[in-house]
Design a protein around this nucleic acid. Structure first.
Lengths: 252, 252
DNA sequence: CGCAAGTTTGACGCTGCTCAATCACTGTGG
DNA sequence: CCACAGTGATTGAGCAGCGTCAAACTTGCG
């Protein structure tokens, strides 16, 4: 069975059969959400960690003036909040962009995996690091990149993340269900401007996008215009021979 | 002795004498950085957790085109990276904006505090939550708020954070060492436009800013124009009677 | 006193927004 | 099988917020 989380973790670490088993156990309580449904709403106090099993979701906030900012995208295999969301009320909402299947993971179950020294634990912690790095990169997108580069950068990010979970075909195309309005809310542009920007990217031969399918014929070229450097996603295997993080070790 | 971290934690939780002692022990290895010095540079692999004891610092990234985005401000009592930065290379740099005193905390020492169930551990975890919430709020600032509101919002945030560590006088003013260029790099504006925006805020009687001293005569008014809602900073004490987070508990 | 860093001001232009209409696609019910 | 509606994509015209460039001014400091 295809499991995006396992794929993602195996890209950076070796998993034992038991590890894989424990990870699969996380998805015991899977619930369905239709597109456009809120999975968690601002102010809620979630009592489960959520794991997207299938579909795309988005963290977002609404301003008093009505404009929406998407502050992160959740793809299959992504946790939302992994642990910290448990400490306090949500300060933002999470919305299903497509029909979603979301696993509700009891906190205890996940903490069993994250609170012991193991390569699995290390790999799971690394996921939160990547989430934060993505948010920081979005700040650059929204703040300092022009529309053309920003949209390109977002698409590069999605390409990398989809590739990580094995969702990119050999021809280099993948399902990209975002509407232009949603791309706009992620990059702080209007859908109108996103439209013109996408057209320019198409005209320049950098992307082929239609019917929710995105193909990037020359990834290097798109990354070049986007100024995309994949290292912030930490896709490459880490040096497990040198365990520098000892978050879990309680005795020095 | 004035300790910003202890003050910050005491705002949301009760600390025992031992807790305070352990926290003070974190600052055994304090190093000095002059203004404009990099405290950590992108690509480094820090082997200590850093804790700002005195002074202001900034996380930032530089784009190929040369523009800089400040992705977070570190005030006294703030950790940088608290734990996650240890897992991999830094994807951004940290710069001393003023002369800084920074404690270098061995990972083991901090993990001793964070890996056991206690109100102190809970409070420390909460700090990382707040850091992330701040980054998300900055996304709104940079992406969806107009310059006038964005600058106002940043100043509101700084006011709240300085108040938390007891650095705001009774008259409501505090040291705000950012230059207009730095404010610009934080809000994704140019220093020229920041200048005009600050003038407008001054003219509207919302702020008094000169000589690195900021006074907000009517906090509610400034928050109003900024659309500032302090809850994302989680300043209010949490309900310790209902310990919902059991990150540390390994047996269910 | 004189330099460096930061602030202020003005003129001008570009990127991206607004408003609004039209087109395309898909699923629905008659 | 087709008219219709709803959602999203596309296009155009006009405009405004903010950037750029450049110069003058102010302040802190050695």
């Amino acid at each position: 069975m295809y499991d995006p989380l396992i794929r993602k973790l195996e890209a950076v670490t070796d998993l034992s059969a038991e590890d894989r088993d424990e990870l699969r156990q996380l998805s015991r309580d899977v619930r369905e959400y239709p597109a456009k449904a809120d999975i968690i709403s601002e102010g809620e106090l979630p009592d489960n960690v959520l794991l997207v099993v299938e579909g795309w979701a988005a963290r977002y906030k609404i301003l008093p003036n009505g404009s929406r900012q998407i502050i992160g995208l959740l793809l299959p295999g992504d946790f939302c909040g992994i642990h910290v969301a448990i400490l306090a009320n949500m300060d933002h909402s999470i919305l299903a962009l497509t029909p979603c299947r979301v696993a509700h993971v009891p906190n205890e179950q996940l903490s069993r995996l994250t609170s012991r020294p193991s390569s699995l634990s290390r790999a799971l912690w690394r996921l939160t690091l990547v989430d934060e790095a993505i948010t920081r990169e979005w700040l650059l997108n929204v703040g300092r990149r022009e529309a053309y580069e920003a949209v390109a950068h977002l698409l590069c990010e999605l390409h990398s993340r989809m590739q990580l979970i094995g969702a990119v075909s050999e021809r280099g195309d993948f399902a990209m269900p975002l509407t232009q309005e949603e791309i706009g809310d992620a990059t702080a542009l209007t859908s109108v401007h996103v439209n013109r920007t996408l057209q320019r990217l198409r005209k320049d031969g950098l992307i082929e996008l239609s019917h929710r399918e995105l193909c990037i014929p020359d990834v290097a070229a798109l990354r070049e215009v986007a100024g995309f450097r994949s290292d912030y996603l930490h896709c490459e295997p880490c040096d497990t021979n040198q365990p520098r993080a000892i978050l879990w070790r309680t005795t020095a």
